[in-house]
Write a protein that binds this DNA or RNA. Sequence first.
DNA 1: TTATTACGTTTTCTCGAGAAAAGTGATTTC
DNA 2: GAAATCACTTTTCTCGAGAAAACGTAATAA
Lengths: 250, 250
Amino acid sequence: MSDSSPPLELNASDRPAPKTLVEGAYLRLRRDIIEGVRQPGEKLRVEHLKDEYQVGAGTLREALQLLITDALVVAQGQRGFRVAPISLADFEDITRTRVLLETEALRQAIALGDEAWEADVLAAFHRLSRAEDKLGASNEAREEWEHRNRVFHEVLIAACPSRWIRHFQHILYQQSERYRRISHFHSTIPRDVHAEHEGLCQAAVARDADRACAILTDHIQRTLESLKGMPDDFFDTGRQSLPKNRRQAA
Amino acid sequence: MSDSSPPLELNASDRPAPKTLVEGAYLRLRRDIIEGVRQPGEKLRVEHLKDEYQVGAGTLREALQLLITDALVVAQGQRGFRVAPISLADFEDITRTRVLLETEALRQAIALGDEAWEADVLAAFHRLSRAEDKLGASNEAREEWEHRNRVFHEVLIAACPSRWIRHFQHILYQQSERYRRISHFHSTIPRDVHAEHEGLCQAAVARDADRACAILTDHIQRTLESLKGMPDDFFDTGRQSLPKNRRQAA
DNA sequence: TTATTACGTTTTCTCGAGAAAAGTGATTTC
DNA sequence: GAAATCACTTTTCTCGAGAAAACGTAATAA
């Protein structure tokens, strides 16, 4: 539970204007990592980054510590920080765990959500659909779609009363998004994501938990499938700034 | 996930000697929070704590940021840090989520664990049993028991291949431990925990997943039950350092 | 009395410089 | 030629002081 507050990290819809420089650097850095600007495994040198993000060294260090919360950055003893590496095995793990948590959350949301929740789901789906139309053109359009996609998935399980499940879901979604974005440059435009979202939306408001969960599971796993078609050396991107190429087992 | 390394935060058995002052302060502070030395909701003033833990202000701030990872500390905009508050609702949530994750992990561990895993489980159970004998006497004995209890639960699911489930389990276990320790001053010595552990251990090595999960679920939920018997104002401890006593609704 | 405003104090946040460690490359030795 | 040693450079880590914000108190006005 990153920051605090009862609503638990739902700063999705609007930017609440970072109250502190640390938070500002944290948000920008997180965005860059998720978008792939900072590549997996890349070394994060404080001296360089403090200039780029226009903050002091100490401030940037604190932002990096915060990013460990999201498992987007790893710290190693006295050897500085790195962008968390990626691997197919890790993404399989993320996918599985996400299905486990998100279907459970969806079940509870369907069981407990009130009419306001139904309305929110429909509204989020509508906004997402609109963003799909404008997709493909500018880069900002894609940003907007990504944002609304996240909101849609968050709203779906917003009626789930478990703060912890929602917290973990948030972390895993971020991870998924990173994989999806990084792979996006290689793959073609998504399959019929719209239909999946639509079915999910309908099943949810119809209170058909089994069907909704089935669709959701399929939806999440499809992303994994499309990533399996990546070139073999796709996950080696992070190797770029590793300690030279220490000869690997002569 | 928290620190780094493939084995994913399994620094349970031995202290790997903190490589950095930040890590040292982090570990000590975490211990104090889990043990209840720092009460829930308590204000964490950097100026005071830096003397107590003998580190600089910046260093302590970084340690606090790290503790947000474990959801043991919350930060509020420009109003400093606090020990994460507790509530019965939160503990119910923790318990539920823990059951969900830990049973799944246990199932996978039972399905995939090899003979070395079986041996580890038996060994951990044995060590835990020994610690139970010496329990009640010194405070250190209880510390040792707590430690071995954690190791036992971690080893049980160590054969689960999902790093993410284990990571989340680790966070939730810490939370549970905090609740359990805080409530320990009020409640009597545990019920027949030994029998529960024993059944769990036997079912696990016998590869009886259903029985093991049933016992585990029961085991986790019992702690919740015993906490429900706490005095009503038990969860108000955190109120101590809140913004004076702002008159609450005339 | 109650609400508002202004001031002073405390706390938090931020920054740059110094100490410690790791990494790098050249030299020496077997 | 390969391994080990040593000095040098880069990077990380740590600290204390200054700037900014929040908090608490007291005085003023309705």
